[in-house]
Simulated assay, not measured.
Amino acid sequence: MQIEIKCFATLSDFTPEGNLLSVDDGTTIKQVIDLLGIKVEDVKIMFINGKHEALESVLKEGDRLGLFPAVGGG
C-alpha cells in the first residue's frame, strides 16, 4: 500500500522522494520511522490525516503521515 509522508523541521531530510512510501498492510508509525532511518526518540508528535496518533497506530492505504520533532523555544 502507499502512504504520503511529510517530515517537518529537523526531520525534513528524511521525507521520501515525492512524499510517498510503499509499505505493507498493517504497518505502524514506528515501523515507518524505522524504515526512514529516524531515531524514534527524535519524533515527538505524529499525525495521521491530521489526527494526533501513537507509535503503535496502524496506517491504511492513502493515509497522510506527519512527523514532527520536539519543538524548543525561548
Rank of each mutant, 00 (worst) to 15 (best):
I3E: 12
E4I: 12
E4W: 07
E4M: 14
K6H: 11
C7K: 11
F8E: 10
L11C: 10
L11F: 10
S12T: 13
S12M: 10
S12I: 04
F14G: 09
T15H: 07
P16R: 10
G18N: 08
N19V: 05
N19I: 06
L20A: 13
L20T: 15
V23Y: 04
D25Y: 02
D25M: 10
G26N: 06
G26Q: 10
G26E: 09
G26V: 06
T27N: 02
T27E: 02
T27A: 07
K30W: 01
K30S: 08
V32E: 02
I33Q: 00
L36N: 04
L36A: 04
L36M: 07
L36Q: 05
L36C: 05
L36S: 04
G37R: 04
G37P: 03
I38D: 01
K39Q: 14
K39C: 05
K39I: 03
E41L: 05
D42W: 07
V43I: 06
V43E: 00
V43G: 00
M46K: 10
F47E: 13
N49P: 05
G50S: 11
K51H: 09
H52F: 03
E56N: 12
E56R: 03
E56I: 03
L59E: 04
L59P: 04
E61P: 08
G62N: 13
G66P: 08
G66S: 15
G66D: 14
G66I: 07
G72S: 15
G73C: 11
G73Q: 12
